[in-house]
Amino acid sequence: MAISTNFWIWIAALLTLAIYSFLYKDNPFYKFAEYLLVGISIGYGISIYWHNTIITKVYNPLVYDKNFLVLIPLLLGLLMFSRFFKNVSYLSRIPIAFVVGAGTGLSVPSSFEFLFKQIYATMPLKLDIGSLIIVVGVISTLVYFFFSLEHKGFVGKVSKVGITFIMVAFGAAFGYTIMARVSLFIGRIQFLLSDWLGIIK
């Protein structure tokens, strides 16, 4: 195999190298790649929004399905533009109030579902040492999150056990991810050595 003659592969390869140059230090090549990525991705994002939101969620329902309910978010969206004008910019608080209300409102039942699921999963369906450790771990972790009691004496000791469980869990998650991240890097190196330089197959 020989070095690639494809113009687009060259672009992808040079941009890849430009990003890696950040590992040495901030430099013009990285800056170029960084600003380019931000600029292009926002342009791409606009196109996605246009296609997925304006056409699919506003224009089509309004024109073809005669779904006039869409006018409400349309109006809320337009109210956001009030921020361009200083004397009416307070109107943008209305859509913000709506989205914050929707977010918090939806989270209440979903937090409950999650809460129930966690408690359910902690119920020991069989009796063994593992179940006992899980019960101890869950309870001591919860004690660590106790805010209205000072972590002294017995509570302090239990919360210490809790933080130990938490650190073991974090370590496990850390170790679990390492190889996945290394394989991402290997993937990029493969692209450079095989697709671009043609050194390996």
Binding site: I19, D26, Y30, E34, Y35, L37, V38, S41, I42, G45
Partner: peptide, 19 residues
């Protein structure tokens, strides 16, 4: 605003931090 692209955002914020 930076961008709604996960790694574009990371790149932009990283650059801003460096500068």
């Amino acid at each position: 605003y930076i961008t709604q692209d996960q790694f574009g955002y990371a790149a932009g914020v990283d650059g801003m931090m460096m500068r």
